[in-house]
């Protein structure tokens, strides 16, 4: 099977969907002439022309709204944010417009569009460029939210997002664009809302999504050397969320750790813990433990940034805690 980077997997998804449906267009800062701030859109301007691969001024609120309007009348925009940090300038269009239009129009105007871009921390980008916003968007009824953690899922989920008739938020990651993985030549779609059990074990469950899945897999491999077998759930979609997969796993392992990049307070992990206590209260052998970013703005200094982020040691410690291991 071909080995492809995360960025090229996204590029393939965009190209294939734009070939398949001429209503699909890509819009954002530096997506066309510059070929994408992270080169996700490399070659697309040359193939599809400037009406379908559209460079915008630096105007997040404006071009997000252009997308909403175009979607209202039948186009299928893919709006790229250079990072989700910048998308805060566009939050009115995402939350007040895209997520609400179908409902407040009494079902007359759906919004088939994708908002996508990198989310969460990279390396030493400090407070304004290192935030994970999935809990903000997943909070909103009317949106779907996906966060693929490898090239295969990135391609399959982006294709699903583009074909979805609702607004879909896609969280990528600067640190993943170079990540390589198997991506088949034949077409595939990954259904939104379905998790992927990436490791099977019976001692403890780790529930995570997005970039953090790679950390969780490292933890599982390391702990396997000590005979600790982990179920590792990659949710892939945050909304809708695969509660059945979470419940089935926790009923088996009776223990869970929830891992996310973002902050603790009102984080996605809090919602997952709520699902676990609703569905698996009697099966739990220990309180669920969460691993997340320290509750501070991201610092610049390398040592402080490392302290702030989830890592292997913190995650292993969490697993040991729920297993009552020393």
């Amino acid at each position: 099977m071909p080995i492809v980077t995360y960025r090229d997997a996204l590029n393939q998804a965009l190209r294939e969907e734009m070939q398949r449906d001429d209503r699909v267009f890509l819009m954002g800062e530096e997506v066309a002439v510059y070929q994408g701030a992270y080169k996700v859109s490399k070659g697309l301007l040359q193939e599809f022309g400037e009406m379908r691969v559209v460079d915008t001024p630096i105007t997040e609120l404006g071009f997000a709204g252009i997308g909403v309007g175009a979607a209202m009348v039948g186009l299928r925009p893919v709006i790229e944010f250079m990072t989700w940090n910048f998308a805060l300038l566009a939050i009115d269009q995402v939350v007040n417009a895209a997520a609400k239009m179908l409902y407040m129009s009494g079902g007359q105007y759906n919004i088939p569009m994708v908002f996508r871009g990198p989310n969460g921390a990279a390396l030493q980008l400090s407070a304004q460029h290192s935030q994970a916003f999935e809990s903000w968007l997943a909070h909103i009824p009317g949106l779907k939210v996906v966060s693929p953690g490898n090239p295969y899922d990135a391609k399959g989920l982006l294709k699903a997002a583009i074909r979805d008739d609702n607004p879909v938020i896609m969280f990528e990651g600067e640190m993943m664009y170079n990540m390589k993985g198997e991506v088949p030549d034949e077409e595939y779609i990954i259904p939104i809302g379905k998790g992927d059990l990436k490791r099977e074990g019976d001692h403890c469950t780790i529930v995570t999504y997005g970039k953090s899945i790679n950390l969780a897999l490292q933890v599982a491999d390391a702990m396997a050397k000590d005979g600790i077998r982990l179920d590792v759930i990659d949710l892939r979609s945050i909304r809708p969320i695969d509660t059945e997969m979470i419940a089935a796993s926790v009923r088996k392992t009776n223990r869970a750790v929830v891992l996310e990049e973002g902050w603790e307070f009102c984080g996605v992990g809090a919602q997952i813990v709520d699902y676990i206590q609703r569905d698996c209260f009697d099966e739990l052998d220990a309180p669920v433990v969460r691993v997340h970013q320290a509750d501070v703005p991201m610092p610049y200094a390398r040592n402080l940034e490392k302290l702030a982020k989830p890592d292997m040691n913190k995650t292993i410690a969490a697993v040991k805690k729920v297993m009552y291991l020393p």
Binding site: A64, A70, A97
Partner: peptide, 10 residues
Amino acid sequence: VPIGTGVGFA
């Protein structure tokens, strides 16, 4: 206003 502009784009 951006939404109306998007309709113009479409």
